[in-house]
Lab assay of single mutants.
Amino acid sequence: ATNIVSKVKWYNSTKNFGFIEQDNGGKDVFVHKSAVDAAGLHSLEEGQDVIFDLEEKQGKAYAVNLRIK
C-alpha cells in the first residue's frame, strides 16, 4: 500500500524505532530510524501526522518512504 496517512503512536529515538497507528484499525506499523533518516528527520513525535508506504518483509509490516503530512 502507498501514501497511507496516519499518526505516530510512539517513537523512541534512543532505541531507534517506533510504531505508527493504522487508521483502518489494522496492526501498528513498525518504523525504523533508517526510514526517519531517509525522510531527513531527526525523530518523530507522538501524534505526528505522517504519510508512508507499507512494505512487508518476512511477514512484518514496515513503514518506508516516510514523510510529514
Rank of each mutant, 00 (worst) to 15 (best):
F17D: 00
F17M: 05
S6I: 04
Q22D: 12
G25D: 09
V50R: 02
S43L: 11
Q22S: 15
H42T: 13
N12Q: 07
G40V: 04
N12P: 00
V31E: 00
T2H: 12
E55H: 11
K9A: 04
W10S: 03
K9N: 01
D49P: 13
R67K: 09
G18H: 01
I68R: 07
D53N: 06
D49T: 15
V50S: 01
A61S: 13
S43V: 11
N3A: 09
G40S: 06
V29R: 03
S43A: 11
S43G: 13
F30L: 04
D23N: 14
I4S: 06
A35L: 03
D23S: 15
F19S: 02
F17E: 01
F30S: 00
S34I: 10
N65L: 03
A63K: 02
G26W: 09
L54M: 10
H32M: 05
G26V: 09
F19C: 04
G47E: 04
D37L: 15
A35F: 05
Y11F: 09
R67D: 03
V31M: 04
I68H: 06
V5L: 12
L54N: 02
H32F: 05
V8D: 00
D23L: 15
G18L: 03
N12V: 06
F17L: 02
S6A: 15
D37M: 15
A63G: 05
G25F: 09
A61K: 14
L41F: 10
Q58H: 14
S13D: 09
A39F: 03
Q58C: 15
D23T: 15
A61G: 08
S43I: 11
V50W: 01
N12R: 09
V5S: 12
S34A: 09
G59M: 05
K27I: 09
K7G: 02
G25I: 08
T14E: 12
Q58L: 12
N24S: 11
V64L: 04
D37Y: 15
T2S: 11
D28R: 04
N3Q: 08
A61I: 15
H32A: 05
E55T: 09
N12F: 07
L44F: 06
I20M: 08
G25P: 08
E56F: 15
A63D: 03
K27G: 10
E46I: 13
E21W: 15
E46H: 14
G40D: 06
V36C: 03
F17A: 01
Q48A: 09
A61F: 15
T14V: 13
A63W: 03
K60H: 09
F52K: 00
I68G: 06
A35N: 05
A1G: 12
A38K: 11
A39T: 06
V64P: 02
I4F: 07
Y62K: 08
G18V: 02
F52N: 00
N12E: 05
A63Y: 03
G59L: 05
F30T: 01
D49V: 15
A63M: 02
N24V: 10
H42G: 11
E45W: 15
N16A: 12
N3T: 08
I20C: 03
F30Q: 01
D53Y: 04
Q48F: 06
A39G: 06
I4R: 10
G40R: 08
L66S: 00
A39Q: 03
K69T: 12
V31H: 02
D53R: 03
D37T: 14
I68Q: 07
K57D: 09
G47V: 02
L54Q: 04
K7A: 04
A38R: 11
D28W: 06
S6G: 15
I51V: 11
V36G: 01
V29P: 01
D28H: 06
H32G: 07
N65C: 06
I68M: 10
I51D: 04
K57A: 11
L66K: 00
F52R: 01
S6D: 02
G18N: 01
I4Q: 08
A38W: 07
A35H: 06
I51F: 07
E56R: 13
E46R: 15
E45N: 12
K7H: 10
A39P: 00
A39K: 03
K33V: 08
A35M: 08
I51R: 05
H42E: 12
E56S: 11
L66I: 12
K33N: 04
F19T: 02
T14R: 14
G25M: 09
I4D: 03
L44K: 01
E56H: 14
V64C: 07
E45Q: 13
K33T: 04
L54S: 03
A1R: 14
V29L: 06
G59D: 07
N65T: 03
G47Y: 05
F30G: 00
G25K: 09
S43N: 12
D53L: 04
V31A: 01
E45C: 14
N65S: 04
A1D: 09
L66M: 03
A39C: 05
L44T: 01
K69A: 13
F17R: 01
L44I: 08
Q48C: 09
L41M: 09
E46M: 14
E56Y: 15
G25C: 10
K33M: 06
I20A: 02
N65P: 00
G47W: 05
D49E: 15
Q22H: 14
K69G: 12
G25A: 09
L66D: 00
A1L: 13
K9Q: 03
L44R: 02
Q58S: 12
T2Y: 13
K60A: 08
H32N: 05
I4Y: 07
F19H: 02
S34T: 12
E56M: 14
D28P: 07
L54D: 00
I4P: 05
K15G: 05
E46C: 13
N16M: 11
Q22M: 15
V50Y: 03
F30M: 04
A1S: 12
K15V: 08
V36H: 01
S34N: 11
E46D: 10
Q22C: 14
I4M: 10
L66T: 00
W10Q: 02
L44E: 01
V50F: 03
Y62R: 09
Q22Y: 15
